[in-house]
Design a binder for these strands. Structure first.
Lengths: 121, 121
DNA sequence: TGCTGAATTGATGTAATCATCATATCAGGG
DNA sequence: CCCTGATATGATGATTACATCAATTCAGCA
């Protein structure tokens, strides 16, 4: 468990968890798995429209971060969430975003006066 | 609100939220703010031990992601969480990590046979 | 006005992540 | 055994994030 290793400082471990979640395709995958208990790679290929190797690489990082587990049955590989709390985490994030976005919406006019800031340090 | 903009697809917005959280220093800052309602930059400098410009840049990304808000009173700038749910999100993450890490711990011996994988695609 | 402390911004080199494409493994079926 | 479908891994170039240091703004005070 190299990435979420408890010998590291706690805030680094937490940051790593969020890094594992910090990509649209991976969120997609986790939401699919949140809704269906388990899913084959083929299924997820169809659902996401990704190229096979691309999906596979994101699945690899999810595995590496300990967020999903996989099991091979015959020639098909099935994935599932490693912990049910992951969907809980996504749920809380969804609620939070709901609030952030409605706030943002009500302030849209004010905020629109600002230029886009392309870079994030 | 360029980063968490609701005109983007939802899973991209969520990924952006997690990106904002995906750094140890930023987790540090958010936890400080979770515990103290508001904190000045000077305070956080002392708490984190970071260099001023470094902290300031991370505060900038937190602002950019809409996770914190700042207010200047006299010559001191105070930060606070933009939404109380952010500490809830951190709390859920902490619980999840607790589970992941104890699982990992019980499997330590098995897992230790694996080499470290440096790269994350 | 010009100092000083507080905080932010800008510039630059380095490292990590991403997307794409090619190649490799792995498990049956013929 | 080799072929084919299903997945995974490797290599490469492009983009983005990070750390560091210099320069700037900003508010109050001498």
């Amino acid at each position: 468990m190299a990435v979420l290793d408890e010998r590291r400082p706690l805030y680094e471990i937490k940051a790593n968890l969020f890094k594992g979640l910090a990509h649209p395709h991976r969120i997609r995958v986790l939401e699919i798995l949140s809704s269906t208990d388990e899913a084959s790679v083929t299924t997820m290929l169809a659902d996401t429209g990704l190229e096979a190797s691309h999906l596979s690489q994101h699945l690899a990082v999810l595995r590496r971060y300990g967020l999903v587990v996989s099991e091979r049955r015959a020639s098909v590989v099935y994935y599932r969430l490693a912990h049910p709390q992951i969907s809980e985490l996504l749920r809380v994030a969804r609620v939070l975003l709901g609030e952030i976005l409605t706030d943002a919406d009500s302030q849209r006019e004010l905020v629109n006066s600002l230029p886009e800031i392309p870079d994030a340090r």
